[in-house]
Design a protein around this nucleic acid. Structure first.
Lengths: 211, 211
DNA sequence: CGCTATCTGATAGTGCCACTATCTATGATG
DNA sequence: CATCATAGATAGTGGCACTATCAGATAGCG
């Protein structure tokens, strides 16, 4: 890593400043390196913007915060929410509403899914919003039929989530647990996406045999 | 959509230029609108860069191209490959090799998985590369144990891929089929990621009950 | 002790990317 | 006929992840 990049991360609050041993000499320990690797992973594999990483790390480091809140923060940060923009604290509504019937329907669809699955999640949840937004977009793009796959997708998602939980459940120290959660959430997306592509290639090779 | 944005898309080759009815009047038909929606979907929900969208659309529009090649193009474009950069045509190797033992191991792990699954995919496949890169990163970040979840992930991925195939299999016209493939590939990621988050929230709410 | 190489922190700049503002020429519209 | 909108072209904006450069200070070597 180029030194100026590290300085940049320090400025951005992604890394703690090294311990000054003299006004022009700082020492970086193992914890720094670990943190740096985590940052790079979130950045490169997870594709998170720096600002999001800062928030996630803040959640990790805030030992007051209960673990499920950290998960929430990671999920929040990792979710590129594509619709109608919404700041975290949910400012005044202003306009918004009015024009989007598609989105409304999509939200209902999501609510139904959540109910059918028995998932206990806040309907205002950002992932749910993102899902609704994606479904609305699909509808608009002429692929409303895609929702028929939701059950299969949800089934698969549950399976993955179970595996994730198993993984995190092994951790004992908060530090480790919390990091596992973050890593699992963010990197898991990339891993799954890659696997999905691979499975698709395979499935499609069977369906459309390459002569 | 702001007009200049549409012009920009036309310049970038994402949209065909409207039919000129006079030097200062162009008419945009339904096909244009459909295409525009697709572009927005790939851009906002899929998060693809404009250049990638251009390639995908070129693949869609090239009626010579067999369907599985289009799937390949979509998968290629949608995969943010985080490692060691590699241009599509694979330029001269130069250096590279040398330092990454992690990556080598990860590649072997991926090869083993592919074999165990009986997937028929080219090992040079970009998704496989991306997977290896992600696994290597996980190892480096101290979460090598994550690979234990690979089987569960792969199982889920297969399920999703099967659903995707079912969906596309309904299509008859090439135009439709190909678009379904692209939409499924790109938007499916977003949908699944959202569902995974939701399932995680649920699972974690059960495991760490919010008092 | 002196001298240079190296490090820190700060400020400003770079390159990329998805737009967006502005300008001119031209034809639509009341 | 006057005004206004539009096509097309060129240049500029803002955001973001860096990166180049500059002082100031010291480590380390002869």
């Amino acid at each position: 890593m180029p030194v100026p990049t590290i300085k940049y991360y320090v400025r951005e609050g992604l890394l703690p400043p090294g311990e000054l041993t003299s006004p022009n000499q700082a020492s970086y320990g193992e914890a720094h390196e670990r943190r740096l690797r985590l940052v790079r992973a979130l950045l490169e594999v997870g594709g998170l913007p720096v600002a999001a990483i800062r928030e996630v790390l803040a959640a990790i480091d805030d030992t007051e915060r209960p673990v499920h809140k950290v998960l929430g923060a990671a999920a929040w940060a990792a979710t590129r929410y594509g619709g109608e923009d919404a700041g975290a604290p949910e400012g005044g509504d202003g306009d918004g509403a009015a024009d989007d019937a598609e989105l409304k329907l999509a939200r209902e669809r999501v609510a139904r899914l959540v109910e059918a699955r028995g998932w206990r999640i806040d309907p205002g949840n950002r992932a749910a919003q993102a899902l609704a937004s994606a479904l609305a977009t699909l509808e608009r793009v002429g692929h409303g039929g895609f929702v028929d796959l939701l059950d299969d997708y949800a089934e698969a998602a549950e399976r993955v989530a179970r595996a994730d939980l198993d993984y995190t459940a092994r951790r004992v120290a908060r530090e480790d647990l919390v990091e596992a959660v973050v890593v699992g959430t963010v990197m898991g997306d990339a891993v799954f996406a890659a696997l999905r592509r691979m499975a698709q290639v395979d499935a499609s090779a069977r369906l459309f045999p390459p002569e």
